[in-house]
Design a binder for these strands. Structure first.
Length: 616
DNA sequence: CTAGGGTTAG
């Protein structure tokens, strides 16, 4: 009779926890109820209270939850496992291992939940495989949850082979097991293996499909990502906000407005529209900005009901790379005012903006304040921004000094910023120092070699140019062919290579380019011959400059877009100085807006000037 | 209980 009453009371209490506990205060009320009814020794009741408490953020496990646990004299394995899970999720992780040992010590045998709670926290492969052996000895490796968490553990330890072995030896697998491995392959950049697994997956669900879409997007294969998204929808698989984010990121990489508007429409018509969904909204902001359309990015931003640090940072970075420094800074202060804490990316955006506008003092002030006032410790990336800010503004010595005295080891970005500034300000000495470091840090980054050799070329140091060329030959680094894309009237994208002669309209294009250059010459344009890094005669240089892919794309754009639209050009390499001048001039003599996205940033040409203020 | 997610400069 008595036992039966206790059982009923336990049952009732757990029901109360499950249906009425939503705040810490509720939990404390329930706790009082537990004491009144003498249930504080019940593993069943306390396990459920713990399970609830660990869903509330910011409650340290060692405080209230662990206290509740230690008041139970003979905890059962469920109660142990609940606390192990809490420590495994929120740390300190070592505590979960200690609890596991203490439970063995007290002859309390683990259950499968014990292991599935434990594995996700293990980052040490030695410890991980030891516990794998335990799980095996206790007979739990045929348990799906346990095996799946073991796979996950090996993946997180970087032991993909071991994870695969567990997977291959499992008697039964579910979609989770497959997807864990698919994602692991995708993250290691091996989309072929991911795809092979996915093809063999007999029960593809939304998550596994999404993993493929996202995997292709993250591995810079946006067309593949779109292909999988299409197949997914054709197969009637549901899509959610995470799927959309993957597709949106793919569209951002393609940088074409046709795709951008297409996916935006799909998002708007789903349950995850940008107005209500911060995740999708922030992704769309980034996408429009990468498609060269900051106005539309800002429209999305304005239409969002909720905004967080991601939305603001994406917009700030968007304004920054488009040269809209004041808008970026204004947004930064607006964000502070409404109480959103900036993070490291926000500051990268802010410094990039300052750098563009030559706002050296403003940037330095914020750099000095970022840790003290906003609690964000500067990283090497922020020092790279500062080196860029100082260097771009012409303070090369100051930039070099900053780099040489920074508290952490400078990374490639830091030296790269310095090299870029040396190129702009034609300083072969600083360029040499920066590239010496870069050649060690990034021996295969071709851009660095080219920038150094161009800097030497600008200074007429042809011996040094050939020395760098030789270095490139030795490392077997070959120049990518320059390539540009431009959107024509009907949204079709046309591709041009440097020196292209294959385009069906090449004669019209050449003529249009020639006409344009004649008009530019009439207002004083001179081909920038010293930006050609080859020691050849002037006619050769002229010819070479004429054949740059972005000029062909520009001429094509002039012929094949409406007069009131923006000509959008994308380029795989950095835009050259001569092309930059031509774009400026073209925007003046034709009255057209031109946007060029090169591999560094956006250039908005309007009425003869560029948003980058001729620094890039 | 286990799987997919956003912003990063040279």
């Amino acid at each position: 009779m008595f036992v039966g009453r206790i059982r009923a009371l336990e049952w009732e209490t757990v029901r109360i926890i499950e249906s009425h506990c939503t705040t810490l205060n509720h939990a404390k009320q329930v706790h009082a109820h537990i004491y009144r009814n003498n249930l504080h020794q019940s593993s069943y009741v306390i396990t459920n209270l713990l399970r609830f408490l660990t869903t509330i953020p910011h409650i340290p496990v060692h405080s209230y939850p662990h206290l509740l646990f230690s008041q139970v004299h003979s905890p059962n394995p469920f109660l142990y496992s609940a606390l192990i899970r809490a420590y495994a999720r929120n740390g300190p992780f070592l505590q979960s291992i200690r609890l596991y040992s203490s439970m063995l010590h007290r002859n309390i045998f683990p259950i499968s939940f014990t292991f599935s709670a434990l594995f996700p926290s293990l980052k040490n492969p030695t410890l991980g495989s030891q516990l794998h052996v335990h799980a095996f000895l206790f007979g739990f490796v045929s348990d799906l949850y346990v095996s799946n968490t073991i796979i996950d553990m090996y993946v997180k330890c970087g032991l993909l082979q071991s994870a695969r072995k567990v997977f291959d030896e499992m008697p039964h697998r579910d979609a989770v097991s497959w997807t864990e491995l698919i994602v692991a392959y995708a993250r290691s950049g091996d989309m072929d293996s991911a795809c092979e697994l996915f093809d063999g997956l007999p029960f593809k669900d939304m998550v596994s499909w999404t993993s493929m879409v996202t995997g292709y997007a993250q591995n810079a294969m946006p067309k593949k990502a779109l292909e999988f998204f299409r197949k997914m929808r054709e197969g009637g698989v549901e899509t959610d906000e995470i799927t959309l984010v993957g597709v949106i990121s793919a569209c951002a990489q393609l940088g074409v407005s046709g795709h951008a508007n297409w996916i935006r429409e799909i998002a708007e018509n789903s349950k995850f529209g940008p107005a209500s969904n911060v995740l999708v909204g922030s992704a769309l902001i980034d996408m429009y900005s990468k498609c060269g359309n900051v106005e539309e990015a800002y429209n999305v931003f304005k239409g969002m009901k909720k905004r967080n640090v991601f939305s603001y940072s994406s917009m700030i970075v968007g304004f920054a790379v488009h040269g809209r420094a004041r808008a970026a800074i204004k947004l930064f202060y607006e964000m502070l005012e409404i109480g959103i804490k900036p993070n490291h990316v926000t500051f990268v955006g802010v410094f990039t903006a300052c750098s563009h506008a030559g706002m050296v003092e403003q940037g330095q002030k914020l750099f000095g304040a970022m840790e003290e006032c906003y609690g964000v410790a500067p990283t090497a990336d922020h020092y790279a921004c500062m080196a860029d800010l100082l260097g771009r503004a012409g303070h090369l010595e100051k930039a070099l000094q900053l780099v040489q005295t920074m508290p952490m080891e400078p990374n490639g970005g830091v030296w790269g910023a310095l090299l870029g500034a040396s190129h702009v300000h034609r300083n072969p000495d600083v360029a040499e120092i920066a590239s010496r470091h870069l050649f060690e840090l990034e021996p295969h980054n071709l851009g660095n070699y080219l920038l150094l050799s161009n800097t030497y070329a600008l200074a007429g140091k042809w011996d040094d140019v050939s020395r760098v060329r030789k270095l490139m030959r030795e490392k077997q680094l070959r120049k990518y062919p320059g390539c540009s894309w431009v959107e024509a009237r009907n949204g079709i994208v046309h591709e041009f290579f440097a020196g292209d002669v294959k385009h069906p309209e090449i004669n019209e294009i050449k003529k249009a380019l020639d006409d344009l250059l004649q008009r530019l010459k009439a207002i004083g344009y001179q081909p920038k011959l010293n930006s050609v890094p080859y020691d050849i005669d002037d006619d050769g240089k002229r010819l070479l400059l004429m054949s740059h892919s972005e000029k062909l794309a520009l001429a094509f754009g002039l012929l094949n877009t409406d007069a009131d639209s923006t000509i959008k050009i994308m380029k795989n390499l950095r835009i050259c100085e001569d092309c930059h001048i031509v774009m400026c001039g073209a925007s003046k003599v034709t009255g057209r807006k031109i946007v060029v996205r090169d591999n560094m940033r956006f250039h908005h040409f309007l009425n003869g000037t560029c948003s980058c203020n001729n620094f890039w």
